[in-house]
Every structure is written in structure tokens, then in C-alpha cells.
Nucleic acid binder design. Structure first.
Length: 263
DNA sequence: ATGGCCAATATGATTGGA
């Protein structure tokens, strides 16, 4: 089973790229972020026509997450618990039945948090603490669990072309990386780092200043696996070439292949 | 991380992104 995540930076602007990418890579489950449209405006029929079930949690103009699945959803839940005042559409969870029992998949879009001296950064750190609390509860179920999405976290200096320029940034501040390690240390596996210690594995290149041409990228889109999912990890990859397409997102897809069969 | 962008909004400027 292939599970992918992709921050599309507007689903409406990425319909053609998405269709091409889906046809080429045939993922079974896709976690999308920054869909940037309310649920009623999501191009649901486009994806249903390609054989996907569609679960959306969007809002007007900003944020927005979704999950596409070749297999039917047993359950879909939206919103990260723990803050009644959080009205951002950044979290959706779906449960799918497999030959090995329930598979739980989350599409998440963690807040950017810049500038760090504002309450935007407090919101980011609070969101990360809530994500860890959520993950702790789900890990106790001892099921395959996939936490995939745009984390807006550069975990280490190997995950940026020019780490020195990110030193004061919300994506790379010590506190941000500390919270990310806290999450990982609950028992999750960063799928990319399960297979490679290489530097230069990026998932985002800014639209500005020729960042793509200079390969001035960062790795901020992550697929985290529970032990029961990591035990079935077969392969992982970054679809870097998608960044060179016409009208690209500034992020590219990241995917895992798991030895899990649908029911 | 800027020389250079992109997307959404009732828009011709502002906000947010990373």
C-alpha cells in the first residue's frame, strides 16, 4: 500500500498536476495540505472520478487538509483536540480497514509560526504539544498509524541547504526542534530517516530568488510512523521532479510503501 | 530568506506563506 503526502498550495491551482501525479504514481492514500478552499468548493468529483474516496476539512482562503483513499473510510474525524478556540482547518484523521486490522492516517498542516516574537509562534508550539498529546493516546492503541503532512519543522542542519539562514526562524528554532523530537521520541519513526542519513533530501523550495534552480531547499514535509507501521515499511521516497513541472506547488510529494494489504 | 514568487480576496492592495 502506497501512502503519500503533498502540500498542494491550493487544490484548485493544482488539479492538472495532481491528475498527472496520481496517474504516474498510483498512491492508495493521499494526504493533502493547503487546499485553500471551503469543503463545498473542493473538487471532489475530480478525485472520485479517479477512483478515490474523499474526506475534506477546509476553510475559506487559507489552510485546509484532505485525505483521498482508494479504500472506504470507516471513520473520519476533523480537528486536533485540546483547544476550543482553534478554528484553523489543519488536521483530519481517517480509519481504514486492512488485512492487518485498522490503519489510521492523519493529514496535518502544522502552523508556520513566523514571526517568532508574536503569538503565532505560541500557537505553533501549543499545536505541537497538542499533537504530541494526541499521538501519545493513539500510540497506546498499538496500531499502524501514519502522521503525514507539512510539519513546518526543519529537524536538523542536514535538512536545509543553508541552515545558517534559518537560525532565528520558527521552522528551525531550538524550541521548535525540541517539540518535534518530543513527538518523535514517543516512539514514531521519521520514514525518510529510517532509510537515509543523507543531507539534501528536500521537500520544499521557495518560489522566490531562484531557490529551485539553486537547490536551495528544506525538508519540512514528513511521514511519521507508529512502530506497527514502521515494521511494515518497504520503501520511501520524495517525488522531487514534480517541483520542475508547469505551475508547481512549492512543496513536492513524499510517500511510503507499506507491506499492508487492503481488506 | 530574497533580486527574482504565488494564491486568495470582491482584488487592483493586502495578507499569508516559509
Amino acid at each position: 500500500m502506497r501512502i503519500a503526502t503533498w502540500n498542494v498550495n491550493s487544490i484548485k491551482q493544482r488539479i492538472d498536476a495532481a491528475r498527472t501525479w496520481l496517474a504516474a504514481t498510483k498512491p492508495d492514500i493521499v494526504c493533502l495540505q493547503e487546499t485553500k478552499c471551503p469543503d463545498e468548493a473542493f473538487p471532489r468529483l475530480e478525485f472520485e472520478g479517479l477512483g478515490y474516496n474523499v474526506a475534506v476539512h477546509g476553510q475559506k482562503a487559507f489552510n485546509g487538509v484532505a485525505i483521498l483513499s482508494k479504500f472506504k473510510f470507516d471513520e473520519v474525524t476533523s480537528g486536533l483536540p485540546g483547544d476550543e478556540t482553534d478554528d484553523h482547518a489543519r488536521f483530519i484523521e481517517a480509519v481504514i480497514s486492512t488485512a492487518h486490522g485498522a490503519l489510521r492516517v492523519v493529514s496535518l498542516y502544522l502552523p508556520n509560526g513566523n514571526p517568532p516574537q508574536t503569538d503565532k509562534y505560541g500557537f505553533k508550539i501549543g499545536w505541537m504539544k497538542r499533537l504530541s498529546a494526541y499521538a501519545r493516546g493513539r500510540l497506546a492503541l498499538e496500531e499502524p498509524l501514519i502522521l503525514a503532512g507539512d510539519y513546518n519543522v526543519i529537524p536538523t542542519t542536514d535538512d536545509a541547504k543553508n541552515p545558517q539562514v534559518w537560525v532565528g526562524d520558527a521552522l528551525f528554532l531550538p524550541r521548535t526542534r525540541d517539540e518535534f523530537r518530543t513527538l518523535i521520541n514517543l516512539g514514531l519513526t521519521d520514514a525518510i530517516r529510517a532509510t537515509s542519513d543523507d543531507a539534501g533530501l528536500y521537500t520544499f523550495w521557495d518560489y522566490q530568488a531562484g531557490a529551485w534552480q539553486k537547490n536551495n531547499g528544506i525538508r519540512i514535509d514528513h511521514v511519521l510512523l507508529s512502530p506497527q507501521a514502521a515494521d511494515r515499511l518497504a520503501s520511501v521516497g520524495i517525488d522531487k521532479h514534480v517541483r520542475s513541472w508547469e505551475k508547481p506547488s512549492d512543496h513536492v510529494p513524499v510517500w511510503v510503501e507499506l507491506d499492508i494489504a487492503a481488506k
